[in-house]
């Protein structure tokens, strides 16, 4: 992956190759600027690599057109951002229902309601993002990411903007949802405790994978 800064190409990621299996939880760790977020963005098809190949569920996503990528994303990928990125002019319920509507499913509201209930926000359905706390906003974002039941869920420092208690709550929830829906989960994080809960940890430095750790399954079960 190259980006251009002025006329100088900057290589952000190079010689990265890895495979993630269904239902796996993978965390990507590494110092700032190591290319973690870029990698996640590439996986989500938000950006394009200058070279290389990314396959998700048999689909080579680097060759998809912008529209094809959007359609692929709405069916296969959920994304949770560090900064939540809820739409400020929509209520919690509407934010969660939006991805379904983009797919042309009009019964989204009842499913969204159920999902918000499962993240403990049944009393906040009609609040706007600005009326919600950070933790609540991220829970809405989680519900939004899961509503399409995507096979792949990507989360970019989901606790980065939250205090540690709220962060822990959000992580528990993320794990719960992962288990309920059976999505493959790829997480980028600074948080070593959070990283330790994954089955597999990839460590990135200067755009390359420098370490990969596999963990016994048991450690990924919350509360143990």
């Amino acid at each position: 992956m190259q980006l251009r800064a002025g006329n100088q190409p900057v290589k952000i990621l190079q010689d990265i190759s890895f495979e993630v299996f269904p239902d796996q939880v993978v965390t990507i760790v590494g110092p700032s600027g190591s290319g973690k977020s870029t990698l996640l963005g590439l996986l989500a098809g938000l950006d394009r690599p200058t070279q290389g190949s990314i396959r998700i569920d048999q689909t080579e996503i680097t060759t998809l057109t912008e529209t094809e990528m959007a359609h692929f994303r709405r069916k296969h990928i959920g994304y949770v951002f560090q900064a939540f990125h809820l739409i400020p002019t929509l209520t919690a319920l509407e934010n969660v229902a939006l991805p379904l509507e983009l797919q042309g499913i009009s019964t989204g509201q009842s499913r969204a309601k159920a999902l918000l209930q499962s993240v403990g926000l049944e009393h906040r359905l009609h609040h706007y993002p600005i009326q919600l706390s950070g933790g609540e906003q991220q829970r809405v974002a989680l519900a939004r990411a899961f509503i399409t039941q995507p096979p792949l869920l990507l989360a970019d420092e989901p606790t980065g903007n939250l205090d540690s208690t709220t962060g822990a709550m959000v992580i528990d929830l993320l794990w719960e949802l992962h288990q309920q829906h059976g999505s493959t989960l790829v997480l980028v994080t600074h948080d070593e405790l959070l990283a330790a809960r994954a089955q597999r940890i990839l460590t990135l430095r200067d755009g390359a994978i420098v370490n990969e750790t596999m963990q016994p399954l048991s450690s990924s079960i919350p509360g143990t």
Binding site: A44, T67, A70, R74, I87, P99, L102, T148
Partner: peptide
């Protein structure tokens, strides 16, 4: 920012 968010949620440009 909102347009970008909509796109990450799977909205295509024409939508």
């Amino acid at each position: 920012p909102i347009i970008a968010t909509l796109k990450t949620l799977g909205a295509d440009s024409s939508q």
